[in-house]
């Protein structure tokens, strides 16, 4: 579908509210100050995805949650490895970082962080739009960001040529960086925009 400037502004507002809640949740969880960027809203063809997420072979911890309900979609949160290590270390109060590639405790902690972030995003989005949305069980991949994202795009066969991102960067002091992406499924965007009256 064609997206007007007015609708893009509305989506940015959705992103703003949702990720504001997510940042607060992460902040509470880690007992650290977390800052949030003004969300960017992008509709990009696949070839240009790296414009948003950076080098496609950079290793990142990627948490993927399917969004179910009346406006389904996909929510993704990804951290650079160093940030993910800091988050896990802070959660467990450990002196040394755990190996995210192999340590199951670290992996389930990251999934839980993703779950909390996505849930708080969805709760505020549901309240704002009046459309009920639920997160599914989170899944985690610690690998090249491009590889994780293409698998997410293709799950259940995504067919459109463009990907719509609502993208917010979370950054903590010190040294925590993370990026949040919400990808509404094809019909969902129309429904969400309709519900908020644009």
């Amino acid at each position: 579908m064609e997206i007007t400037q007015f609708q893009l502004d509305a989506l940015r507002e959705i992103g703003n509210i949702g990720s504001g809640h997510a940042a607060t949740a992460l902040s509470t969880l880690l007992q650290r100050r977390i800052e949030m960027s003004v969300p960017r809203v992008w509709a990009v063809p696949f070839e240009q995805v790296s414009v948003i997420v950076g080098q496609l072979d950079t290793p990142q911890a990627t948490i993927y949650v399917k969004v179910e309900g009346e406006a389904p979609g996909k929510a993704v949160f990804f951290f650079p490895i160093e940030s993910a290590e800091i988050v896990v270390q802070a959660l467990f109060g450990m002196d040394e970082p755990l190996d995210l590639y192999t340590n199951e405790m670290a992996q389930s902690a990251l999934k839980e962080v993703g779950n909390i972030l996505v849930s708080s995003f969805l709760i505020s989005l549901s309240q704002f739009s009046g459309i009920p949305l639920q997160p599914s069980v989170p899944a985690l991949a610690v690998d090249m960001i491009g590889a994780s994202l293409d698998a997410i795009f293709l799950e259940e066969g995504l067919l459109d040529d463009t990907v719509l991102f609502i993208d917010t960067q979370l950054s903590g002091i010190p040294k925590i960086k993370g990026q949040f992406i919400f990808l509404p499924d094809d019909g969902s965007l129309k429904k969400l925009l309709g519900a908020i009256g644009v």
Binding site: Y64, S136, V137, D143, A147, D150, A151, E155, E156, G157
Partner: peptide, 17 residues
């Protein structure tokens, strides 16, 4: 053609890889 994510308790719906 990898399978990047596994959802616990659920078989992969369609192994697109």
């Amino acid at each position: 053609g990898a399978q990047m994510f596994a959802f616990p308790g659920k078989p992969p719906v369609l192994k697109i890889g």
